[in-house]
Design a protein around this nucleic acid. Structure first.
Length: 420
RNA sequence: GAGCCCGUAGCUCAGUAGGUUAGAGCGCCAGGUUGUGGCCCUGGAGGCCGGGGGUUCAAAUCCCCUCGGGCUCCCCA
């Protein structure tokens, strides 16, 4: 077990060839579907300034207070990105993307880093993809974002998800709600769990998230944030629900859904899967109308979401869904002897030119070993060449699936291959 | 930061009243078939039994420490 001298860091894993095909599948799917939604990809650096993340997500958020990988070099503070909303907003401001006109519809995918204790569905380096719409306050934007998220799950075959929806309004209504909540909880402060007591002053909304037994009675009787929404927030929320209904996207209102980052406003949502175990969030997001300004841009309404790619794979596994195609190669050239080998290497490019994949043995092994290898590589055809073939100028062209073969000139073989 | 569980071949795992050269299946390599894969048969390679210390005539097995991993709480993707 402890053979390898060097290993990956805790919570960071290699993605090996045997599992890469499902990654390619998902990545391609996201590119294709995002294009259909008319979103454009944006790629930002893996590292950002620490200050951006701290300001963006909030000093008190769990991510910033205990989960970021950061270091400094000279005057500069670096942080490995823990999420991509703040960096995308940074890029939006820095590159004046608002000047492209209209709403900016952006998507991304890539690795994120959080220094947490790993467990099922949670790694220190993990991958997300996400969409962001900058410059629209319209409920259509919220709904398109949600629709995309669900669309991807549908395409993959993950259908038993639950969309949880809430609105946390603007900061004013949220503050008055906080006060009401505190007034409600205060008489029972002593009876609440330790964690909840700690949250009471700094972030009472999070108490609603508590899973502690002793907190439940107080949570159930607590006032509901949607009763505190401004007229504007209320009508925005209603439109979101209306449009979702029009799209026949089922959702579950959860007045206690509160998300971790400080930048969220108005609509908040999460996509939950029962197949994930303890970490059941497949994706999450919401509106962040104040973030652009907070980071130094013009006031710009925005909405987005991020989904965990590894979590999608876990859900697939639980559901018995296999993503990606089988490993295969179109042609395997089996050679006997040095002259045949020399001939074989020269044929590979001719086959590849036709848009097919081709390979041969790299180890100079026996014919049997080469045939075995061709089988393992899931080759569709084998071209077998030895002295006889070289002398006659006709080569054994074998269909590996049908176990049928015939002698053909290389030109005829290429012709045959062109039709498959 | 806290709790629970687990470390024996590349993988999945057998192997304790402590006892000579540590096993199986799969995978890998080779042979059976000196020019034909998938099935079958035979053989081979591959382990300081995670590491260190202790008890003992004797430790994969018992004790202590340590490292690594998994899961859970918190929180999130």
């Amino acid at each position: 077990m402890a053979q390898a001298k060097y290993t990956t860091h805790l919570g960071m894993v290699d993605i090996l060839p045997d599992e890469i095909r499902k990654w390619h599948y998902l990545e391609n799917l996201i590119h294709e579907e995002a294009a259909k939604f008319n979103f454009e990809e944006i790629r930002t650096p893996i590292m950002e300034q620490t200050e951006l993340i701290v300001r963006g997500l909030g000093q008190l958020s769990d991510i910033v207070s205990k989960e970021i990988f950061s270091f400094s070099r000279g005057e500069d503070n670096y942080v490995l990105r823990p999420e991509l909303t703040a960096p995308v907003v940074r890029a939006y401001i820095q590159n004046h993307l608002d000047q492209r006109g209209g709403s900016q519809k952006l998507y991304y995918m890539g690795p994120m880093f959080r220094a947490e204790r790993p467990q099922k569905g949670r790694q220190r380096q993990f991958h997300q993809f996400g969409l962001e719409v900058l410059g629209s306050s319209d409920a259509v934007a919220d709904v398109e974002i949600i629709a995309f998220m669900i669309h991807i799950c549908d395409k993959i075959g993950i259908k038993n998800t639950t969309l949880k929806l809430n609105s946390i309004g603007n900061p004013e209504s949220r503050n008055s709600y906080k006060e009401a909540l505190k007034t409600h909880l205060k008489p029972n402060f002593e009876k609440m769990s330790e964690v909840s007591q700690k949250r009471f002053e700094k972030n009472p909304l999070r108490i609603l998230d508590s899973k502690e037994e002793e907190d439940q009675p107080f949570i159930e009787s607590a006032p509901v944030i949607t009763d505190f929404l401004s007229d504007e927030s209320f009508s925005h929320y209603n439109k979101v629900k209306e449009y979702l209904a029009d799209l026949e996207i089922p959702f579950e209102e959860d007045p206690y859904l509160v998300r971790g980052m400080d930048y969220y406003t108005e609509t908040a949502f999460e996509l939950i899967s029962p197949d994930l175990g303890a970490q059941d969030a497949l994706a999450g997001g919401g509106r962040y109308d104040l973030l652009v300004e907070e980071i130094g841009g013009q006031p710009t309404p925005a909405v987005g979401f991020a989904a965990g790619m590894e979590r999608l794979f876990i859900a697939c596994e639980e559901l018995g869904i296999e993503l990606g195609s089988e490993k295969k190669v179109d042609v395997y050239i089996v050679t006997l002897g040095e002259a045949a080998r020399k001939w074989g290497v020269a044929q590979l490019p001719k086959i590849r030119e036709k848009g097919l994949s081709a390979t041969m043995d790299y180890k100079g092994r026996s014919m049997k070993a080469q045939m075995k290898d061709a089988n393992r590589e899931n080759a569709q055809f084998a071209i077998i060449v030895g002295e006889n073939e070289l002398n006659e100028g006709k080569f054994t062209f074998r269909d590996m699936k049908e176990s049928e073969e015939e002698l053909l000139t290389m030109d005829d073989i290429i012709k045959n291959l062109s039709v498959i």
